[in-house]
Amino acid sequence: MQPAGQRAILDAARHEFAGRGYGAASIRDIARRAGVSLSAMYHYYSGKQELLHALLHESSTQYFTSCDQELARAGEDAGERLAALVRATVRYRAERRLESSLLLTEWRHLSEDRLKEARQRQYDGSRLFHEVVDAGVSQGVFRTPHPEDARRGVIAMCNAVAQWYRAGGDVGVDELAERYVELALVLVEYRPAGSLPRRSR
């Protein structure tokens, strides 16, 4: 459990980086938004670089945890597993828009060592979809002749949710996730032997 001051600093940095961009955000503005002194902030983080890394690491860890939880509820059918990944991704992008913005746009500002870690995490996220799509083709339940294009399309579609979704609109997160599941299954031309993938509960 993080101390309240540290949590406030991370929250402030998240809003400053997402709102102004990493380059325009300042340590002073982050401390002011967090309601802490500069010395208190430096007690936890050495500067913007460490703050950005902490936010991206925390955010990606939360995303992978969500994917693992959804996959644990899915069966072995590739359609169910793709549905699980789509649900996890859409919910994450809709409910954590600021974190998603940082993951998708600000990671390039990391130092070389930390940039390597961020790229690996991006690869790991893409690999989850890659493995599921490959499994669906092998199982004969994904009939698309263009599995790589379908995979990229599904990922791009889910990631874009962070750019336009707003809470309180006509469509709730759960309904949106199920719509995107249907769209994803169309893209891979899912032809199950039995019923459609069950909805998560």
Rank of each mutant, 00 (worst) to 15 (best):
G125V: 05
L104I: 06
D29Q: 12
F64D: 02
E76I: 10
M41D: 00
A74Q: 10
R143T: 14
Q139F: 10
G153Q: 07
A4W: 01
D68P: 02
Q120K: 12
I30L: 09
L110D: 00
H57D: 15
L102C: 08
G75C: 07
Y92I: 00
R81K: 04
P147D: 03
F17T: 00
R91T: 08
Q2N: 11
S138Q: 14
R179V: 06
F64N: 02
M41G: 14
G140W: 08
A34N: 03
A118R: 09
N159F: 12
E117C: 06
E70C: 13
R199M: 03
K116I: 12
A78I: 13
H57C: 09
G21R: 04
H53G: 12
R33L: 08
S100N: 06
R7S: 15
L51K: 01
Q6L: 06
A8W: 03
H15K: 11
E76S: 12
H43W: 12
A24N: 14
Q2D: 10
S46K: 13
V90S: 07
Y42D: 03
V171K: 04
S59W: 08
Y22W: 03
D113R: 15
R81N: 12
L115P: 03
P197T: 01
D149C: 09
Y123L: 14
L128C: 00
A4F: 10
A156I: 06
A4I: 11
A25M: 03
L196A: 13
Y123A: 13
L85R: 02
P147M: 00
A31V: 00
S195K: 15
V133N: 01
G79Y: 04
L56D: 07
H109R: 10
K48W: 09
D124M: 04
V188Q: 10
R114T: 12
F129L: 06
G47N: 08
V161E: 03
R121W: 06
A184T: 07
V86H: 07
G169C: 01
R119E: 10
R7Y: 06
G21H: 06
D77W: 11
H130E: 13
A167M: 09
M1H: 08
I155A: 08
M41R: 03
P197K: 04
E99D: 15
Q122Y: 08
